[in-house]
Computed example of a mutant assay.
Amino acid sequence: MRPILLLVALSLSSFSVEAREPATEVIVAGGPIQIFKGTLSGGDIKSFLIRPSTARTVNLTLDSTPADCGVEMQTSSQPGYASEFSRFPTTRSMESKEGETFKLSFYLMRAEWVSRGECSFSLSIE
């Protein structure tokens, strides 16, 4: 029994596991516009947790160059994905409730991922 456990432990230790970058937390409190930019390649995903400090309107401006970044959004008040963004640049205004969190994730579209391309994105939060 012990040789089997040793073999399993050794085989599992040879796998490398990549940890995803944790989501960037953004507190929206009515100050200056917050701007985030980045580049994605391979299976990268860049996520933002947007937390308004009070019930308010949150304005998001998204852009992608080329337009091969996909974006999806989840809210803590609704299960599942609230919306996907298909055209860039785009601006969305959303009414938030107190304590609500928005999770916005940028990812590489499949065609660009297969061709080992990359995309650059920008996000402005007001």
Score class of each variant (00 low, 15 high):
residue 13 S to R: 05
residue 26 V to D: 03
residue 113 W to F: 06
residue 21 E to Q: 15
residue 37 K to A: 10
residue 74 Q to N: 14
residue 79 P to C: 00
residue 10 L to Q: 08
residue 59 N to V: 13
residue 104 L to P: 03
residue 62 L to C: 04
residue 58 V to W: 03
residue 1 M to R: 04
residue 93 S to Q: 11
residue 95 E to K: 10
residue 102 F to C: 06
residue 71 V to Y: 00
residue 47 S to N: 00
residue 44 D to M: 09
residue 35 I to L: 13
residue 43 G to V: 07
residue 110 R to G: 08
residue 123 L to C: 06
residue 50 I to F: 07
residue 126 E to Q: 15
residue 41 S to P: 05
residue 70 G to Q: 01
residue 116 R to Y: 02
residue 122 S to T: 11
residue 103 K to C: 05
residue 78 Q to P: 01
residue 77 S to G: 03
residue 117 G to E: 05
residue 117 G to P: 08
residue 87 R to K: 04
residue 55 A to I: 00
residue 22 P to M: 06
residue 97 K to Y: 08
residue 4 I to H: 07
residue 11 S to Q: 11
residue 17 V to E: 05
residue 91 T to A: 14
residue 105 S to R: 08
residue 116 R to V: 10
residue 40 L to N: 02
residue 89 P to H: 06
residue 35 I to K: 12
residue 125 I to G: 08
residue 27 I to P: 04
residue 22 P to Y: 09
residue 66 P to S: 04
residue 92 R to D: 14
residue 90 T to C: 01
residue 25 E to Q: 11
residue 50 I to Y: 01
residue 55 A to E: 08
residue 43 G to A: 15
residue 113 W to Q: 09
residue 67 A to L: 03
residue 112 E to L: 15
residue 98 E to Y: 03
residue 110 R to E: 13
residue 79 P to Y: 09
residue 113 W to E: 06
residue 112 E to M: 07
residue 62 L to N: 05
residue 33 I to A: 14
residue 90 T to I: 12
residue 104 L to S: 10
residue 55 A to W: 01
residue 84 E to N: 14
residue 60 L to V: 09
residue 115 S to M: 10
residue 117 G to R: 07
residue 111 A to K: 07
residue 68 D to W: 00
residue 123 L to P: 00
residue 45 I to C: 11
residue 50 I to T: 04
residue 95 E to P: 00
residue 76 S to N: 13
residue 121 F to R: 15
residue 33 I to D: 07
residue 58 V to D: 09
residue 96 S to H: 03
residue 64 S to M: 07
residue 98 E to D: 13
residue 126 E to V: 09
residue 33 I to T: 15
residue 96 S to A: 10
residue 74 Q to W: 13
residue 108 L to E: 10
residue 119 C to K: 11
residue 15 F to H: 14
residue 85 F to L: 12
residue 112 E to C: 15
residue 58 V to Y: 02
residue 2 R to T: 13
residue 119 C to A: 07
residue 77 S to C: 02
residue 37 K to P: 04
residue 27 I to F: 02
residue 71 V to T: 03
residue 113 W to A: 08
residue 37 K to Q: 12
residue 24 T to S: 08
residue 57 T to Q: 05
